[in-house]
Deep mutational scan, measured.
Amino acid sequence: MISLIAALAVDRVIGMENAMPWNLPADLAWFKRNTLNKPVIMGRHTWESIGRPLPGRKNIILSSQPGTDDRVTWVKSVDEAIAACGDVPEIMVIGGGRVYEQFLPKAQKLYLTHIDAEVEGDTHFPDYEPDDWESVFSEFHDADAQNSHSYCFEILERR
């Protein structure tokens, strides 16, 4: 099963200049909980913004210009990325925008964090048809001392 995991502000903004323009430790914990011990696929820009392999996960970098870091697996196509994951129950696609666009048609599940923030962004989550998805989990949280904005975790499964 292919799943996408993303944090989205208003207007589906997911990033600005290779960074997330908010401070939500709870979302980072949600991300870790849902990706640990699963292969993660990301684009080169996302890889560069993280700066290191995510521990406890097979890191697969999709790029037309593969790098030389041998701590991760470099691939040039969506099919190659899927094959590099091996026989696993769930593959997690973690961004960025172009990689989400490439995998959305193949995805069966979306793990979304909806952030109540209007922020400037240069990267967006692809538009998706809500009628194609069923919400199977939703959990709202107010902003607090650690988390700069209110947010809602949601899991959607393709109908």
Rank of each mutant, 00 (worst) to 15 (best):
D142V: 11
F140W: 11
P55Y: 13
D11L: 04
I14L: 15
G86T: 09
S63D: 01
I60R: 01
I91T: 12
E90I: 03
G67R: 06
H149L: 01
R71V: 09
D144L: 03
D69W: 09
P25M: 13
K106G: 08
P126I: 09
F31A: 00
E157G: 08
I155A: 03
D127T: 12
Q65G: 07
R44P: 01
A83F: 10
W74Y: 15
G86M: 09
K32A: 05
T73I: 13
P25E: 06
W47I: 12
P105K: 08
H45S: 15
S135L: 10
I14C: 10
R98I: 02
A83G: 07
S150P: 05
V40G: 01
E139P: 00
L54P: 01
D142C: 08
V75Q: 05
N34E: 07
C85P: 04
F31C: 01
V88N: 08
D116C: 15
A84Q: 06
K106I: 15
R44W: 03
H114E: 10
R44E: 04
A6Y: 05
E48V: 15
D122S: 02
D11N: 04
I82T: 07
T46L: 00
I155V: 07
N59C: 14
F103G: 00
T46S: 15
D69V: 08
I41E: 04
V99I: 13
D69L: 09
K106L: 08
G51W: 08
P130K: 12
P126F: 02
L8H: 03
L112P: 02
I50Q: 02
D132I: 10
S77N: 15
L4S: 01
S148T: 10
K106R: 10
A29Y: 02
A26W: 02
E101R: 09
H124I: 09
E129S: 11
A84K: 06
F153V: 05
E139N: 07
I50A: 03
I82H: 03
D127I: 13
A26C: 02
T68P: 15
H124T: 11
K106V: 11
D132Q: 10
D79K: 11
H149R: 07
F153C: 07
R44F: 06
W74M: 10
V88R: 09
G97W: 00
A29S: 04
P130S: 12
Y100L: 03
E129M: 13
A84L: 08
V119Y: 03
M16R: 12
I91A: 15
E134W: 10
V99P: 00
